[in-house]
């Protein structure tokens, strides 16, 4: 079974989204922050990562940068999850600073909370097949 790694600090979001992942027919792995998330990526080799943008300890942005700048991990598709609209997100100081002037790679998809549950399931199926 394909694995989906879900990284979000909020319990509610994890409960909700992990249910969606299960319904889509994939195995779900959870992490509370970017640091934990990176550990799981290396260990479990997920086929897809659903990543919250802002989290304590290690933010989603930093984890995203680590993923995209690590040769062996940069091809894992990422769905970014955030309450911020994607346009302003990619222009935000935080993101630009994290990538230190380097071009910011676009994630596979960008989900702006709140999203309809079915759409997220569709999206996962589309990416993972």
């Amino acid at each position: 079974m394909k694995k989906v790694l879900l990284v979000d600090d909020e319990v509610d979001v994890r409960k909700f989204v992990s249910k969606l992942v299960e319904r889509a027919g994939y195995e779900v792995i959870e992490a509370k922050n970017g640091m934990e998330g990176m550990g799981r990526v290396r260990e479990d080799k997920p086929g897809l990562i659903i990543l919250d943008v802002l989290m304590p300890k290690q933010s989603g942005i930093r984890m995203y940068r680590e993923l995209k700048t690590t040769e062996s991990l940069k091809d894992i598709p990422v769905i970014m999850l955030s309450a911020i609209a994607p346009k302003s997100f990619f222009r935000s100081q935080e993101v630009l600073a994290e990538f230190a002037g380097q071009p910011v790679p676009e994630p596979e998809a960008y989900i702006e909370k709140p999203e309809e549950p079915e759409e997220l399931i569709e999206l996962m199926k589309k990416i993972l097949g």
Partner: peptide
């Protein structure tokens, strides 16, 4: 938006 996301999830 975050609250709404929680409500939708619930």
């Amino acid at each position: 938006k975050n609250i709404l996301f929680g409500l939708k999830g619930g």
